[in-house]
């Protein structure tokens, strides 16, 4: 390809797009505060953390919030959720969607789940195909404003040619993000740290402590950050990927526990019969019971971001999704 035929992009002044970039709120006030409004629609946002820390929950909540109008912190568009770890738990998605819909100041007239487009990819080639071929077509017919890849890591962790997949995925999604003003979120797994935690980890924890002190720990119902929380794991995929991420959010479990109420619907089933979740109706046979359970308080930390300081906020995962931790 001759470089002469490529026209250079035109410059714009920084002022022309000041405050023009919309933010996607997470729906958890303390997290939105440290993110100064929510996830930015620029570059690639990464959510990483060990399993069962709430990554997918947060993604579900983002999918629901993305459909809200701009003034409510949403992006006013469809959400596209690409799952690589088997089909996503749609029941959980419905729970979160109904809570998000009910907690809005206005009547949400549509079913939030209807505007979440799900897709699954089993291999990195499939994922690249989705991003390269399917998404551009989809973007022409639907206003997709959020793309979540949950998770890139599970596909390429065991591949030898990681770097090229990483780079291509990144390039494609970045181009999409830029051209269509889409918020791109990638989920990443973690790798265990066996030795002494690296300097970056120590630096992060000390900076989190400073942030804790600056805000006196009150603003966000904050739990004191400890090195133990961060010394077990670090984000996977190494430096090559980390350089491509614009904003990295790290989820960890704190040592605090909290009692949460879990609302469960117990369906009285006939023996031996498996009920399909779609066929299940709220009849008299469905009883709602509330169970108390122990759950750990989690923490979301901003590891790096071009526009945010290193900070953290604590949250809990409840039936409603991700919520503030109120000690």
């Amino acid at each position: 390809m001759s470089t002469k035929e490529i026209t250079a992009p035109l410059p714009q002044t920084a002022f022309s797009f000041l405050n023009k970039l919309p933010r996607l709120k997470t729906g958890c006030p303390s997290i939105d505060t440290i993110l100064s409004g929510g996830l930015p629609v620029c570059g690639i946002n990464e959510i990483c953390g060990e399993s069962a820390v709430g990554k997918t929950q947060l993604c579900f909540q983002l999918c629901c919030n993305a459909q809200l109008p701009l003034e409510c912190g949403g992006l006013n568009g469809y959400a596209c959720y690409i799952s690589t770890e088997g089909p996503p738990h749609t029941g959980r998605l419905q729970e979160i969607a109904s809570y998000v819909a009910n907690s809005q100041p206005f009547e949400v007239e549509w079913n939030l789940c209807d505007n979440i487009l799900l897709s699954t990819a089993g291999t990195s080639a499939e994922l690249l195909q989705i991003i390269r071929e399917k998404l551009p077509v989809l973007l022409q017919i639907k206003e997709v404003k959020l793309i979540i890849i949950d998770s890139l890591t599970s596909l390429i962790r065991h591949e030898f040619d990681q770097a090229s997949t990483i780079a291509r995925t990144n390039l494609l999604s970045e181009t999409l993000s830029e051209q269509h003003q889409i918020c791109v979120v990638c989920v990443n797994q973690v790798t265990s740290i066996f030795d002494e935690p690296p300097d970056e980890t120590k630096f992060l924890v000390r900076s989190l402590v400073e942030h804790y002190k600056d805000t006196q720990g009150q603003a966000f119902g904050h739990v004191y950050p400890t090195i133990e929380e961060f010394s077990r794991t670090k984000p996977s995929l190494g430096m090559a990927w980390a350089h491509l991420v614009t904003t990295r959010l790290f989820l960890t479990r704190t040592s605090h526990n909290v009692k949460i109420k879990i609302r469960t619907e117990i369906v009285e089933e006939e023996e031996g019969q498996i009920t399909d979740i779609k066929k299940r109706k709220r009849t008299e046979s469905t009883k709602t019971t509330v169970v108390e359970a122990n759950s750990s308080v989690r923490r979301l930390s901003i590891v790096f971001s071009p526009h945010l300081r290193i900070a953290s906020a604590s949250f809990i995962v409840t039936t409603n999704g991700i919520e503030d931790y109120m000690p």
Partner: peptide, 29 residues
């Protein structure tokens, strides 16, 4: 603040080809 930001010209090339094109166009700019 407005003057500061108006005097920063931002290019957004995404590939090596557009980067090269941008750099080649710089003298004109």
């Amino acid at each position: 603040v407005q003057e500061f930001l108006t005097r920063i010209h931002v290019y957004r090339p995404h590939s090596h080809t557009t980067l090269l094109a941008t750099v080649r166009n710089l003298p004109t700019f």
